[in-house]
């Protein structure tokens, strides 16, 4: 099984990177751009176990390590 994990800053938390990229896109003429937020995308291969177990384990990984819950949210998809 494979997990696709997205870690993003919580809404309301300042995203300096997103802000800088948004300004750069504006400067390059992409005037329609707004609300740029930068996050992390992870792909993880999982060995064995049921789908439920995998979900449980991935959630644990996110909360223990992959996301800093003080400032970040996470979501994930589990697929074949």
């Amino acid at each position: 099984m494979k997990a696709k994990i997205y870690v993003t800053l919580k809404s309301g938390v300042l995203d300096p990177q997103g802000k800088a990229v948004e300004q750069a896109l504006h400067a390059l003429g992409f005037k329609e751009v707004g609300g740029v937020r930068i996050g992390k995308y992870l792909e993880i291969a999982l060995d064995g176990g049921t789908r439920d177990e995998a979900e449980h384990r991935v959630r644990e990984m996110c909360e223990k390590l992959l996301a800093n819950l003080i400032i970040e949210d996470y979501r994930f998809e589990i697929g074949p």
Binding site: L9, K10, S11, G12, V13, L14, D15, P16, K19, A20, I70, I71
Partner: peptide, 12 residues
């Protein structure tokens, strides 16, 4: 909606 942790932006 209110983050208690402030994020620093050294570039700004």
């Amino acid at each position: 909606k209110r983050p208690t942790v402030q994020v620093g932006d050294p570039f700004t």
